[in-house]
Nucleic acid binder design. Structure first.
Lengths: 246, 246
DNA sequence: AGTCATAGTTGGGCATTATACAACGTCATT
DNA sequence: AATGACGTTGTATAATGCCCAACTATGACT
């Protein structure tokens, strides 16, 4: 017994509450988790007592509570990478004209922890806290290619270009390692191309990735190489910076 | 038995992890929560398995995991108030030249859910996710005066000006109701003054508060009334907006 | 309005689960 | 090399949380 059942159930409920935008009812929770209604009721009310869940008295559905926002702040402000990356993100945005993103691996996904928005009207936003799949995003593939992140079991398809074969992906990652940067060529969002590179710390361990995202009309195959040079360059600078942090 | 013990303990651990900036060891956790080391170990490893905690293999101390960042996003994007308030916050900042903040009540505190920073070099930042006390902040007092938020049991002192008597606070809130806005006159941060008003929804229920914060040197007693007029005005507009939301 | 149906909460017996205690392994420090 | 501190793991026990069921509240439909 190395996993505490009721805590695990509570955490699963938090996950579910996070996914459902319009709240979840007790019965839905009970069904999804395959637990008794009574148990579900007690679990959520415990979550609610500590501010992690909130009950809408009208609809009797539960939402995530505000407590988690407070928690997330402590996570973000603690990350040395985030602080260090601020100016590099800004540079990247200014030099490329596209939104720049910073991400770390989390739970088999890529988690966006910072963003500098481009002033362009048409731009690709990714709010802090967004979690996207690894296999079809530039940031994710940078992590896969250079880090010790596992390739997910199933590769979900999002667009016609999404790589769905593990074999193909392996070869693709090989190529990424060779050229030094990862490209997402409309593999997640149609009409969106991204370029990303990994960030290393003092042990040459991959701790995150940095990159840009923009509409395919601006990040054209012709412009891509020169944009990639900038991303690589700034990524290298940030990695060097992280080498001497702490 | 309406509270699930082990879940509650897990949540308390999350709180502790959120407060400690440099991680917590198992023994510290066990002592603080007055549980066995073994239990603490199992609880945290469950948290870790689901991404809510993270173990620093070097120091063997635990941090909050990245998972909570993902959760917080769903909270923030769900709040209709936050979306609606964006442009009002910006207006407020532009017209007053000070940082504008948006907050909601949470767990007997005031939780900052959005901010528009002023371009001034000297400015009062409050990052999203910050939780401050109710009785000594303008936003908090606005919530207390107009909302159904309880006055906390103990009124902690932060500066010489902090109101620490419940009676005095009651009268002060009365005054706030009369004039329509709340002021924090260096009651939380020395050298910082704030002005805030409550935001009402379609039922005339207080759902949050909006306000500005700045150095006392700029928000002087002389300028205060005219600044307050702007805050009141924009607050009224936002409340009206929220009346027709949904 | 009255009845029915659905959903959420509460109570109690019981088995599973989490706990406390202790031993072990690991690492750092002297 | 030895000691000490810390985290993890094993195990018996009893307390905890689970299941089932009854109860309550709320809303729908006639």
């Amino acid at each position: 017994m190395t996993e505490i059942q009721s805590l695990a159930r509570g955490l699963k409920i938090l996950d579910l509450l996070g996914q459902a935008s319009d709240g979840i009812s007790i019965t839905e929770l009970a069904e999804t988790l395959k637990v008794d209604k009574g148990s579900a009721s007690r679990l959520v009310s415990t979550l609610a007592r500590y501010g992690y869940a909130e009950k809408d008295e009208v609809t009797r559905r539960y939402h995530l509570g505000p407590q988690v926002v407070g928690l997330s702040r402590s996570v973000l402000t603690r990350l040395p990478l985030r602080e260090a990356a601020k100016s590099y993100l800004r540079q990247l945005m200014e030099r490329t004209g596209e939104c720049a993103h910073l991400a770390v691996p989390a739970q088999g996904k890529v988690l966006y922890i910072d963003q500098v928005e481009s002033p362009a009207t048409l731009r690709v936003n990714a709010e802090v806290g967004t979690m996207n799949p690894l296999h079809c995003t530039a940031l994710g593939k940078a992590l896969l290619a250079f880090g010790d992140v596992e390739i997910p079991g199933t590769l979900e398809r999002f667009t016609p270009r999404t790589i769905k074969s593990k074999r193909t992906l392996q070869g693709h990652l090989e190529e990424i390692r060779r050229i030094g940067y990862a490209v997402d060529d409309e593999e997640f969002d149609p009409g969106v191309r991204c370029i990303a590179v990994p960030i290393f710390d003092f042990r040459d361990k991959v701790i995150g990735a940095i990159g840009i995202s923009g509409p395919s009309t601006r990040i054209t195959p012709e412009r891509l190489p020169q944009l990639a040079v900038m991303v690589v360059e700034i990524g290298k600078a940030l990695s060097e910076r992280m080498t001497f942090t702490r």
